[in-house]
């Protein structure tokens, strides 16, 4: 433990109002902490520069998973374990379940939260590609009220977010895909479990009459932020599953990503493997489309 604890302050409000009031009184001063699976690592290493922590773990307003008509709503404090176990999530949003399954190990999944995975803003986070693939929206709250933003416009740059200093992430709304769609999630990590991703690709598609009518591809670890593969999507959208221009999409995805060399992998590997995984996803899409 390298932190000098007396330098740190923690407030632990019992209600959302209390928390928001504190945030609005001293905007930017308080760093929310939920499951602690990211921030406590920094604290232990003596690298947590935020000295004032707002423990939001007691805010029941931010808990729970509910089906609201066309979408599933996740409170920001929903843990990975809760995501994995919830019947509606398992039925409608298999990519979310899979991304929760491959995040850390059981001990992390019991503590880490979906909201934390989003606002920690790591490009290597495992759930954001799934949320991007399903076209999630996120809801932010402050004393000024609530607002909803498409998740794909939330990350503005490396560790930069569309999040005001007085706002908390309240919930995540994920539309339930219509009909039997195509779901694909693959994380390529440094090992088979308890790993950080080197590249990650989630996709969801809706096929009607043998044509790809809807497609979203979410990517992790290949750009400063979790990102959509817009160019690759554009190549495939509206095409017949029997004649998917897979190699064109594989070329196109190169302009969607800007990977780097770091201690976990190389830019070259990330480029090639992201393309390979996309090819695998699209081949599966073609097979699924033909079978349906």
């Amino acid at each position: 433990m390298r932190a000098y604890l007396p330098d740190y302050d923690i407030q632990s409000p019992e209600t959302l109002d209390e928390a928001l009031t504190l945030l609005s009184r001293e905007p930017g001063k308080w760093r929310p902490i939920a499951g602690g699976t990211d921030l406590m690592v920094l604290l232990n290493a003596g690298r947590l520069s935020d000295l004032n922590l707002l423990d939001i773990s007691r805010l029941t307003e931010l808990r729970g998973i509910s089906e609201n008509g066309p979408s599933v709503t996740f409170g920001a404090l929903t843990t990975y374990s809760e995501l994995r176990q919830h019947p509606a999530v398992r039925e409608h949003l298999p990519n979310v379940v899979e991304s929760a399954r491959v995040t850390g190990a059981q001990a992390i999944q019991n503590r880490g939260t979906l909201g934390g995975n989003i606002v920690n803003a790591s490009p290597a986070a495992d759930t954001p590609p799934s949320l991007l693939a399903y076209g999630a929206e996120i809801e932010l709250v402050s004393v000024r009220g609530k607002r909803r933003v498409p998740y794909e416009s939330f990350h503005k740059g490396y560790k930069k977010m569309d999040l005001a200093p007085d706002e908390l992430l309240h919930s995540i709304h994920v539309p339930i895909p219509k009909g039997s769609g195509f779901h694909f999630y693959r994380k390529v990590g440094t090992r088979q479990a308890q790993a950080i991703s080197k590249t990650c690709l989630a996709a969801h598609a809706r096929i009607e009459n043998g044509v790809v009518e809807e497609l979203r591809i979410g990517l992790g670890s290949v750009a400063p932020v979790p990102a959509r593969a817009r160019s690759a999507e554009a190549v495939i959208l509206g095409k017949a599953v029997d004649f998917l221009p897979i190699e064109d999409a594989v070329k196109a995805i190169q302009s969607d990503i800007s990977p780097i060399d770091d201690i976990r992998s190389t830019a070259r590997y990330r480029r090639v493997v992201t393309a390979n995984v996309l090819r695998q996803a699209l081949e599966e899409l073609a097979r699924t489309g033909r079978a349906s």
């Binding site: 433990m1 602690g36 406590m40 690592v41 232990n44 374990s81 001990a107 308890q194």
Partner: peptide
């Protein structure tokens, strides 16, 4: 000290957690 090795695991309210990542207040 970073929730990776699991040597500090305990059951917290019946579920496994890494105790190096749990602040006292929680």
């Amino acid at each position: 000290g970073e929730g990776e090795c699991g040597a500090c695991a305990v059951l917290l309210d019946g579920k496994i957690v890494n105790s190096c990542l749990v602040p006292a207040i929680q």
